[in-house]
Simulated scan of single mutants.
Amino acid sequence: MLIRQAFLGCVAALASISAMPAIAKPVIDCPLRDMPFSTATPLIDILRSPAARSVVDKVVPGRIDTLPPFFTGTTPPSFSAILSLREAVGMLQIKPDKVAAIEAELRALPLTDAEKAARCARYDNDVPTFALPAGRPRLLLFEKINGFRDGPSVDAARKALLGMAKRMGWSMVVTDKGGAFNPGTLRTFDAVIWNNVSGDVLTLSQRKALQAYLARGGGFVGMHGTAGDPVYFWDWYADRLIGARFKGHPSNPQFQEARIAVNKAHPLASALPAEWRMTDEWYSFGTNPRAAGADVLLTLDESSYKLADGLRMGDHPLAWTNCIGKGRIFYSAIGHLPESYSQAQHVSLLESAIGWAANRNAPCRAKG
């Protein structure tokens, strides 16, 4: 009897082990793994490498330590993941000859296996399993953040979108795992929604999966901080998917009331008024999404709020749509303040945009 019980116990233990989720293998295809050190390296990777950090400290002793602590965290999410060393030395106003010396010495450094592994550690290949609620369309709300994470806005957006899904009869699940971006998982969803995602978050294979998903007709919705990083390490994402590169936002004051004008000829404009006013953090972009073929839905009236001359765009797009292959793309820069996710016009905008992006039969028009 004792032998039989021991045998059954072993069988049960083996069964429980086999039922456990597979342990994800270490990520080895992160985008910057083999990139030589340089001033274009993400600041986080400079700070985490004793050899690279010592180069900077040798050429400009103590200068890195004068950066605000907000910029120098080494555990994601961290602002240091969305700055390159080049931007950091620019903020510190380091002289060009010193920058050139840093560049030369960094490029001479060998890249160790430990440093490659450290670069890849902020990515993941964990494939989540979802229990999809009933309803259509099926939506993946994605929240992996390696850069700047504004918790209140992320949380408010999630709460609003889950409530919206329940109200509209949509099926929505949430993940912060980049491993969800694989062909099999993405095939399940009609659209992916990036909730204030910041920092480089997808491996090379995950990037390819997203690109293929959109080309085949999947939808993409990007919200506010999804296009708010000062530096991007994936040109296709910034220049093609979003179609504009963040330049900055007012800081004094950061949050202001402004007038939003609606392009009533846009297919998503039917539920929106011709204009409305609201308070938020207003992004400016160094490139205009119209140049990437975007069909602009909302523009910002720059005369209605205070901004520095360097942030003026003239034509100031705020929300737009675009097409990639058969895929439908929507981005809105609204959404820093948590209360913006209960603002009536913004809620109506998101309902229309998500419904359109997730409708594989919806027409998509690009300009230019």
Score class of each variant (00 low, 15 high):
Gly219Glu: 05
Arg207Val: 03
Thr185Glu: 13
Asn182Pro: 03
Lys159Cys: 09
Gly169Met: 03
Phe181Thr: 14
Val231Tyr: 05
Asn146Glu: 05
Gly179Trp: 14
Glu143Leu: 09
Ser198Tyr: 04
Met172His: 08
Thr175Lys: 11
Ala180Val: 06
Val221Lys: 00
Asn182Ala: 01
Val154Cys: 12
Asp150Leu: 11
Asp200Thr: 01
Leu186Arg: 12
Thr175Asn: 11
Tyr213Ala: 04
Lys177Arg: 11
Met168Gly: 12
Gly225Trp: 02
Gln206Val: 06
Gly163Trp: 11
Phe148Gln: 10
Phe220Ile: 06
Phe189Gly: 06
Leu186Pro: 14
Trp194Pro: 09
Phe148Met: 02
Ser205Leu: 08
Ser198Thr: 06
Asn196Thr: 08
Arg187Asn: 12
Gly151Lys: 12
Val201Asn: 12
Arg187Cys: 11
Leu161Phe: 13
Glu143His: 13
Asn182Gly: 04
Asn195Ala: 02
Lys159Val: 08
Asp200Gln: 00
Asp190Ser: 11
Tyr237Phe: 14
Gly179His: 03
Gly217Ser: 13
Pro183Asn: 01
Val197Thr: 09
Tyr237Val: 11
Trp170Asp: 12
Val154Tyr: 08
Gly169Gln: 01
Thr185Phe: 04
Thr188Phe: 06
Lys208Val: 03
Tyr213Glu: 01
Ala215Phe: 13
Met172Pro: 03
Ala157Gln: 11
Pro152Cys: 12
Gly219Tyr: 03
Leu161Asn: 10
Phe189Tyr: 10
Gly218Asn: 07
Tyr232Ala: 10
Leu161His: 05
Phe189Arg: 02
Pro230Ala: 08
Lys166Val: 12
Val173Glu: 08
Arg158Gln: 14
Met164Phe: 04
Val231Arg: 13
Arg240Cys: 05
Lys208Pro: 07
Lys159Thr: 15
Leu214Gln: 02
Asn195Gly: 08
Asp155Asn: 12
Thr175Asp: 11
Ala227Cys: 05
Gly225Lys: 00
Asp235Glu: 14
Ser153Met: 15
Ile193Ala: 02
Tyr232Phe: 05
